[in-house]
Structure formats: C-alpha cells, structure tokens
C-alpha cells in the first residue's frame, strides 16, 4: 500500500496506531511525504475558513444558466401530407394519364384485336366463278341492299 494514500486520513486524525506513528516518521524523513502532508493541511484549513456555501443561490444560478441556453429546436414533425394545392394537381395529372391511356386504347389498338375473325376452309373442289359484285338480299323478298 502506498503510504501517500494515508496522508489525507492522517491529517484528519483518522489513522490508528501503530500506523499513525509510522506515518509521522515518514513525514519527518521524506520530503515528498512532508510536502504532501502540508498540502493536505493547507487545503483542510482553507476549507474550514471558507464561508458556508449558499446552496439556494447556487441552485438559482445554475438554473438561470440552463435557461439562458439556446432552447432546443422543437422536433419538426415530418410533413406527411402534401400542400393543399397539390391534391387537385395530382388528381388532374392522374386523370390526364387515365384519359391518355383511354385515347391510346381507342386509337392505337390493332384492328385485329377489336375484330372477331372466323376462318373456314371449305373442303372439296368446287367450281366457282367471280361474276360480279357481291349482292346483299332479303331472303323474304329477295330485295337488294344499297351499295
């Protein structure tokens, strides 16, 4: 154990015998120990002479310093909502896109997609003659249609 650690207790008369006598001898023999003991005596004396601390005044002073600090910026709630004017703008854009898709669908779809197409391969060999333009007639009256 380092004897220096006992100096502070020895100055406060808290070291019991025979260690108190031993510390006294060390203080007399060792200059470093003597200086340490004197330092402790000095500090103890100054503390004893110091006025009693004004605890309440200290608390007020500390609190004042804390209040004088720049207030912490309030936490900014992240904006999760768009500005009011953006909703109609977004709706207009979406309506435009929907209408564009509709327009493209009506104008760009290949004709085959809108047509039902039936195919018939007539079996056998038949002698057909292209004699004229096609004719559309009512079965009941055999009246023709207009070209």
């Amino acid at each position: 154990m380092n004897p220096k650690m006992l100096i502070s207790a020895h100055v406060d008369h808290e070291v019991e015998e025979p260690w108190a006598t031993r510390v006294d001898e060390l203080i007399r023999q060792d200059r470093e120990m003597e200086a340490e003991a004197q330092l402790h005596h000095k500090v103890k004396h100054q503390l004893a002479e110091a006025p009693w601390p004004a605890i309440e005044d200290s608390q007020i002073a500390v609190w004042s310093r804390l209040q004088a600090l720049a207030p912490r910026e309030a936490l900014v709630k992240p904006t999760t909502f768009l500005p009011w004017w953006s909703y109609p703008a977004v709706a207009a854009v979406l309506a435009f896109v929907l209408g564009s898709g509709f327009w493209l669908g009506t104008h760009s779809a290949p004709a085959s997609q809108n047509l039902a197409e039936l195919k018939v391969q007539v079996p056998g060999q038949y002698s057909l003659q292209l004699s004229g333009d096609g004719q559309l007639l009512k079965v009941s009256t055999m009246e023709g249609g207009a070209p």
Partner: peptide, 9 residues
C-alpha cells in the same frame, strides 16, 4: 334473314 352472294348473283 339476309343472303349475300360474295361472287355475284
């Protein structure tokens, strides 16, 4: 009912 002659009547 209607009838159509595609190659002419």
């Amino acid at each position: 009912r209607v009838v159509y002659f595609p190659l002419g009547r």
